[in-house]
């Protein structure tokens, strides 16, 4: 199993390399966190300001979707390799869920 790691022959060098990679990635995580907070703030302010709800509803849903993509791809590492099956099944779930929500907001009351 050890051959899963990139080996330069010198384990010490590899570890240092990995540490650096991890650290870099952590920086990205903090950036995406700041963006998520920023998006949340916009959403709350948009509602607080009281624009027309025809604008606000789609707008804040869009913000939520963007924020969730950050969560999934950065915090949950879906951008990494080896997440093909997880993505397939997550998106299938999203599709089924979206159809459900669509149906419940259109053909429940008449």
């Amino acid at each position: 199993m050890a051959n899963h790691q990139p080996t330069s022959g010198n384990p010490r060098v590899d570890i240092e390399y990995r540490r650096k990679k991890n650290k870099e990635e952590m920086k990205h995580q903090v950036t995406s966190f700041s963006l998520m907070i920023f998006l949340t703030l916009i959403a709350f302010f948009a509602v607080g300001y009281g624009y027309s709800h025809w604008f606000i509803a789609p707008f804040i849903i869009l913000l939520a979707v963007i924020q969730v993509i950050f969560q999934l791809y950065y915090f949950m590492h879906m951008s990494h390799k080896g997440h093909e099956a997880p993505s397939l099944f997550l998106y299938s779930g999203v599709t089924v869920g979206a159809i459900t929500v669509l149906a419940f907001s259109t053909i429940i009351w008449w």
Binding site: H83, P86, F89, L90, S92, G93, V94, G97, T100
Partner: peptide, 9 residues
Amino acid sequence: WLFLGGETV
């Protein structure tokens, strides 16, 4: 992950 797919639904 598959469980989370189900949780999504």
